[in-house]
Computed example of a mutant assay.
Amino acid sequence: MSISKKEGKLFDMQDRAILRALLQDSRKSFQDIGQEVGLSTTSCWNRIKRMEESGAIQGYTVKVDLAQLGYQDTVIVQVNLESHSDATLYEFGRVLETIPEIVEAYLVSGDYDYYIRIAVKDTRDYERLLREKLYKIPGIRHSKSTFVLRTLKKSDTPFG
């Protein structure tokens, strides 16, 4: 049964079950994943290989608790730029990539041009980041910062 199609590749319920297993623990063996989803080890390996080759699986990583590493606060920053030229958008995005505390950045529609998620140690660390990095980016017309009080849900996929 076909669930979705991307560039001619079909991903069925078993593929999605494999992805859920990998999202839960990407260090599981092919044998363990196969048992969990009702497939042989070889069939499971073939499906994972196909999903890697198609780009559906883009890599393997670890989940990190930022608070354990000293980053206690998350700030959502909404930004408006003075210009929307290709050069301005490109340069703004390029500079954002150089700031390690920025963990996500989105070009969005609506009242603001960008939503940026930033990990900081505390309010003083955020103030430092604003002065030393964010406000030095040319072309920012306006920004609005909101501290996250509690994370209610966090997932990289709609089926994870």
Rank of each mutant, 00 (worst) to 15 (best):
G110W: 02
E101N: 15
I18C: 06
L19F: 00
D12T: 09
Y115R: 01
L39W: 06
E101T: 05
A17R: 11
L10T: 12
R50D: 07
C44I: 03
S145A: 15
L23W: 02
A87C: 04
S2W: 01
G139I: 09
T157Q: 03
E104D: 13
G110S: 05
F11P: 01
H142G: 01
S2I: 11
I99W: 06
S2R: 11
T42C: 03
Q31T: 14
T146R: 01
A21Q: 13
M1V: 12
G110C: 05
Y115M: 00
P158L: 09
I118Y: 08
E36A: 15
K144Q: 14
L19M: 14
D12W: 04
D125E: 08
D12Q: 08
A21C: 12
Y126N: 04
E53A: 13
D156Q: 01
D73K: 15
L69S: 08
A87Y: 13
S145I: 04
A17T: 02
K28W: 05
G55N: 01
F159I: 00
S83A: 14
L130K: 15
F147R: 10
G139T: 11
K63D: 00
G139L: 10
K144Y: 13
Q14N: 13
E36P: 06
Y90G: 09
I3D: 00
L22G: 05
E127L: 14
P158E: 05
S43H: 08
M13E: 15
Q58C: 04
F92D: 05
V79Q: 01
Y126K: 03
Q68S: 15
P138I: 04
I99S: 07
Q72W: 07
I48P: 06
F147N: 04
D12S: 09
Q14M: 12
S4L: 13
K6V: 14
E52N: 10
A17G: 06
Y60R: 08
P100W: 06
S2A: 12
L39H: 09
F30T: 03
P158Y: 05
Q31K: 15
K153A: 14
A56F: 15
Y126F: 15
T98P: 06
I118M: 12
I3Q: 04
G70V: 04
T157W: 00
F92I: 02
L107F: 14
S43C: 06
D111L: 14
S109F: 15
K6N: 09
D32V: 08
D113N: 13
F11C: 03
M1R: 10
M51Y: 04
D15I: 02
I118R: 10
S109N: 13
D73R: 13
D65M: 05
C44T: 15
R27F: 03
G34S: 11
F30M: 09
I137R: 03
R141H: 10
W45K: 10
T151P: 00
Y71E: 02
H84T: 10
L107M: 12
L152N: 02
S54I: 09
L96F: 12
S83I: 08
E101H: 12
R16L: 08
T151R: 09
E53R: 14
G70I: 04
T61F: 13
E7C: 09
F159L: 02
N80V: 02
N80M: 05
S4G: 13
R124A: 10
P158K: 02
F159A: 00
L107I: 10
Y90Q: 13
T146D: 03
S85K: 13
D125V: 01
L39Y: 10
G93Y: 11
Y90C: 07
